[in-house]
Amino acid sequence: MSTRMELASTVVEDAVSPGPSAGLAGSAGSSAIFEIQDLNVYYRDFHAVTDTSLNIYQNEITALIGPSGCGKSTVLRCLNRMNDLIDGARVEGRVTYHGIDLYGSSVDPVEVRRRVGMVFQKPNPFPKSIYENIVFGPRVAGWKGNFDDLVEETLVRAALWDEVKDKLENSAFDLSGGQQQRLCIARAIATSPDVVLMDEPCSALDPIATYRIETLMRELKKQYTIVVVTHNMQQAARVSDRTAFFSVDVGEEGQRTGRLVEYDMTDRVFTAPSMKETEDYITGRFG
């Protein structure tokens, strides 16, 4: 219990003062929520991500792009300690959240995840009713209040309310893929997090559902900070404020290690990238 209180109270103090502005991207006035310094991630002996440093800024959408296997998901999952669930995953370097070391020994990953929510590649609603999907997070966090109001408010914010308001007790699996993914976004914001991490949230969806989610992301960034992994560069260009481009280095024995190549405002990355690698990747994809 003491570690939870500790994390909670320091968050409030530090959120007021902007953190030190390190990182590759110039600050655009908003303050850094996450500071990642010299991050190295290993899966047992496998070195997945090397020496990555970047800052994530408040109320912005940060896109992580790059070829598959370059460690985008790995970096993303360091931000809410989801990697703790993987046996053999090891994180080195420093990841701070509002100035607090996320990997500090007294930090409770459960408390981190209540503040840093997550949306996954494949929609994964709970095999329960739509209503239950929304209230589970707040309930286990000990939230006290009117759950009916919470469900409505959350679904309205996730732009799903009109489609599901008459079938809240139906199984979440009765929804279409796109609706399920928006339900997962609603579930993630139901706990009133600070940040929402999205790992290729549209890769399993059709263009219309994708468009809806992108619109929703733009709406949500007024209240939340969003970090999104995508392999769709048009999507990164359309929705994000900043873009981090990762690439893979192939070592002598064929081991593939992800590395951050360039991190900048999205317009710059897409119109005037400073690295040749970035330009090749972007133009290669755009044809």
């Binding site: 809410n80 989801m82 669930l85 459960v110 408390e111 995840r113 209540r114 503040r115 929510g117 997550m118 949306v119 996954f120 494949k122 994964n124 609603p125 709970f126 095999p127 589970f136 997070g137 286990v140 966090a141 997962c184 579930r187 993630a188 139901a190 706990t191």
Partner: peptide
């Protein structure tokens, strides 16, 4: 039981 279900639960801050 699919890992995705556990991730969904941990992802909203469940113990």
């Amino acid at each position: 039981v699919p890992m995705a279900l556990r991730e969904a639960s941990y992802g909203v801050g469940a113990t």
